[in-house]
Structures are given as structure tokens and as C-alpha cells.
Design a protein around this nucleic acid. Structure first.
Ligand SMILES: [Mn+2]
Ligand SMILES: [Mn+2]
Ligand SMILES: [Zn+2]
Ligand SMILES: [Zn+2]
Lengths: 157, 157
DNA sequence: TGAATAGCGAAAATGATTTTCAATAACCCT
DNA sequence: AGGGTTATTGAAAATCATTTTCGCTATTCA
């Protein structure tokens, strides 16, 4: 499937982050690039929170403050580069944003925190039609299924 | 549609809260009853957070501490009497739990915070089949649609 | 009714996120 | 390229919802 041309695809163009930032009056900084790089090199289906971003940058020898991380996350969500997720438990997670029609959803084990992703076009349809029916302009949909994963089930008896 | 017999229906029996609590080793207290009463008398489609519960009880002349409110909410979620929602913005909301097949979902205006409810059997179906396909035991599904409501759209131009 | 202890309130603690502020660096304009 | 403007940074303090602690009270049950 083609990319949505309205969404910047940063995977190819190394200079695109600067373009996207400057277009909205933000400045390009090495910190923002490094954070975005983490998301681009993260395993598919891996979600990052501020703590993990901080730690991963430390591990690769980069020092960065939490305030900068939080500020960068907000800017990138605002620009549509990242998506903020409320997977569970008091912290927010982030992932690369995907075009609306390709949005995926999450199945979370409430015991071990394991997260699995799945796609289903029905979600997008229901989200679109419900928001249209009430005159809402749709921003995004999150479908989160909570349960207990197979290995936790066997542990718990 | 019938109530799920596995879920206690507290709307009728004034003494049922005590029964449900004691069955799991919890004690009945007037504070817990008052909190549950608030939910039972709340307008349909209204979601309450700890702050609002505290204020509503103050308004009706009841003094109660936040620690008690938070503890009661946790117990009632554990007992399946309440459902915890991550509608948005750093605080948790609660509502009376409904049988799984009747679960509803939420459309949230990210600008003014207005929340509308809707039902769609497709959600439950997708949640069930996805969790079954991966061997998860299903606890619950939350579908949250974010957008901008009609009146905020006109305000924002 | 009385012993055992779950639950209460008040205050302190926690922990993720946000804000403040002085120093720095990106951007724009010559 | 150099320089002024100001967005961004880092460190530390502040915020704020929620949780924990602890001495006292009230519920349960024999
Ligand atoms: Mn994901
Ligand atoms: Mn609801
Ligand atoms: Zn698990
Ligand atoms: Zn609105």
C-alpha cells in the first residue's frame, strides 16, 4: 500500500526532519534527530516511553535531559510524526505515526505488560462513521484490548 | 437484554454492596456505599474522577479523604462493579461496569473534553477474536476515538 | 459482646511530567 | 561568513494525581 502523501515519510530523506520542523516554526536540533532515530531503528511493534528513550541514548553515549525528551515528544506528536499511546499504567508510550488507514491496535497483557499489535479495518470504519455521525472531525482511534497472555495464564494456574 | 448473572446488579438490592464486598473478604463501609451511590445517581454517560467524587460528596455534606476514595475505586474495579477509563489527560475516570456484551465506547473532543458514548458489536467481536487468536484471556476492550466536536470546530474556525 | 483486623483520615511520599531560568545554538538577514 | 534574535537546552525546582504510612476507629464474626 502507498504511503499517505500528507504524512511525511522520514525513513528515506535524512534531511526531512529539519524541513518538517522548520515549516512549523520549530528548529532542527541534534536531540530531536537522535530521538526520532531511536524510533526509526526500534523493532517493529516496540513502543517507547521517556524513560526508555533516556536510557537508550545514555547507552549509546548521548547525554540528554528528560525535559528535552518530553518537549521533543510533544513537538513530534504535534507534527504528526509520532503517535501517543495510553497502553497502561501511568506512563505514556510513543511510536512512529502511520497513515490513518493503516492504523493498528493493541492487545495488552495486564499481568506482564506484553503488547501485541493487530490491524482490522473495521476499527477505522467504526471510528469514521461514529465521528461523522456526530459531526466530529476525526483525529485518531485507539482500540486497546486488555487480557492475560498465554504464558501468564499458565503461571497463574 | 438480560443482565449477565455473573455481574452483580446493584441498582435494586440496597444490601447487595455488602454481600459483594464480604464475599471477597472486604468490609462494607458507609464511604464505599456513598461512592457507589454517586455512580448510580450520575447521569447516563457521565464519567467521574476522584476529584469530582470528592467534590460531590463535599457538596452533599459528606467529608471523605482522597485516600479513601482511591482505595474504594480500586476495590470496586477489582469486584467488577466499576470500570476504569483512560479517556485522556492524566487522570482516570470511572463508570458503572456493564456486562461485556453491552460494552460501549467513547468519542472524545480533545479540545473541550466532551465525551460521547456509542455501542457497536463489531468492537466486541474484534476484541474477542483477536484475543482468542493469540491465546489471551480477554478482560476488556476500550475503543476511544479522538476528534474535535462540532462546537469546537466552529470556535476554532 | 469482644478480639482481631480491615478501613479510615491526615499528612508525607512518590513518580511521571512540566516549568523555570540562565546559557547555548539554530535560523534568518545582511 | 558574521551577528542579532529567539527557540531550545539542561539542571533544578515545581506540579499534580495517586499511593503509602501510621495511629485510630469501626466492621466482622465467633
Ligand atoms: Mn503499536
Ligand atoms: Mn462510558
Ligand atoms: Zn503476560
Ligand atoms: Zn469540543
Amino acid at each position: 500500500m502507498e504511503n499517505d502523501p500528507a504524512l511525511p515519510s522520514l525513513n528515506q530523506e535524512p534531511e526531512l526532519l529539519k524541513t518538517v520542523l522548520n515549516k512549523e516554526g520549530f528548529r532542527f536540533t541534534s536531540q530531536r534527530q537522535k530521538i526520532l532515530d531511536l524510533f526509526q531503528s526500534a523493532a517493529l511493534g516496540h513502543h517507547l516511553n521517556a524513560e526508555e528513550i533516556h536510557q537508550q541514548l545514555l547507552d549509546q553515549g548521548e547525554k540528554i535531559s528528560f525535559s528535552t525528551i518530553y518537549r521533543a515528544l510533544h513537538v513530534m506528536v504535534q507534527l504528526g510524526l509520532l503517535q501517543e499511546l495510553e497502553l497502561a499504567e501511568g506512563r505514556k508510550y510513543y511510536e512512529l505515526n502511520t497513515p490513518f488507514m493503516d492504523q493498528h491496535h493493541h492487545l495488552v497483557c495486564v499481568h506482564c505488560g506484553d503488547v501485541q499489535e493487530f490491524e482490522d479495518a473495521k476499527m477505522t470504519q467504526v471510528g469514521s462513521s461514529e465521528s461523522a455521525a456526530r459531526g466530529f472531525s476525526l483525529l485518531n482511534c485507539q482500540f486497546t484490548v486488555y487480557g492475560i497472555c498465554p504464558s501468564c495464564q499458565s503461571l497463574l494456574g
